[in-house]
């Protein structure tokens, strides 16, 4: 009834703590069902490790539906693995061949320290949002929701950008460890909407400058878009650049706003 089991060889990065040295270790996982998700394959491996008195491999996960952004690792050198537009947790073993050799290692970037094994600290992404990735709207101050019509096309494009799950794969994919795709997605979401106009230029400056404090600069490799599980478009990076230039206009504060 169920499909025949696969055998997988896993080479995994093991590192006991942020400052400890790390190394690759090889494991064999038999009994892999093609219907398993990648993380279920790791669960199975971890159960075996515990049985053999070896500490299980630490990795972050939660929703296992590709929406929370917790999971993420390099799978054979590619963030989230080979399937386009797919987070690690949504990848299924049927996408691999029997006897495949899979190397897993953590997302690597200067701003992402390793907590343990495959778990990394991505909180630098929060610092970018804290710098201005919001619309100031204290609770209770809002007018009726239908007062400001938002053209469907605008709302749809804002939603395309807002889908970012904050996983950090774009950073891990980038040869420069840049966070342009992540930052541009948040900026586009808010800068496109009518509600986001009042803070548009300050938001852009503050977020871009904070991003540059932690992450490398973008030289248009476009690896980020290919790695992004939500297929966020690099067009948003072009928009970020345009808004950043506009936000630099000297008379901006005098004029109150720069209109697009």
């Amino acid at each position: 009834m169920s499909a025949p089991k696969m055998h997988i060889k896993v080479t995994a990065w093991r590192q006991s703590g942020p400052d400890a040295p790390g190394a690759f270790k090889d494991y064999d996982v038999n009994d892999v069902s093609p219907d398993m998700s990648f993380l279920e394959m790791l669960d199975t491996l971890n159960e075996r490790l515990i049985e053999n008195n070896e500490e299980p491999i630490a990795f972050d996960h939660d929703c296992r539906e590709g929406i929370c952004g917790s999971c993420g690792m390099m799978i054979n050198g590619v963030p989230h693995g080979p399937e386009r537009g797919t987070a690690t947790c949504q990848l299924h073993m049927r996408k691999f061949n029997d006897n495949a050799h899979i190397t897993v290692e953590p997302f690597r970037a200067a701003a992402f320290t390793i907590n343990k094994d495959l778990s990394v600290d991505r909180s630098a992404l929060d610092r970018i949002v804290e710098a201005g990735g919001y619309i100031t709207a204290p609770t209770g101050s809002a007018p009726d929701a239908n007062l400001i019509p938002v053209p469907k096309a605008v709302s749809d494009t804002a939603m395309d950008a807002a889908q970012c799950i904050g996983c950090g794969a774009c950073v891990a994919a980038c040869p420069n460890s840049a966070a342009q795709l992540f930052t541009s997605a948040k900026l586009a979401h808010l800068n496109l909407l009518p509600q986001g106009q009042a803070e548009r230029w300050d938001r852009t400056i503050d977020m871009v400058e904070t991003m540059e404090m932690y992450f490398g600069s973008c030289t248009n490799f476009r690896e980020c878009e290919a790695a992004c599980p939500k297929e966020i478009s690099v067009d948003f990076i072009a928009m970020l650049n345009k808004d950043y230039v506009k936000s630099q206009l000297k008379q901006r504060r005098l004029a109150g706003q720069v209109f697009p």
Partner: peptide, 22 residues
């Protein structure tokens, strides 16, 4: 009703009709 107003003000991109209404 206040929740929807609040969320829209924050920029939650709820689905819209062609006329721009929610």
């Amino acid at each position: 009703v206040n929740i929807i107003d609040q969320c829209v003000a924050q920029g939650v991109p709820f689905a819209r009709e062609y006329g721009g209404q929610l």
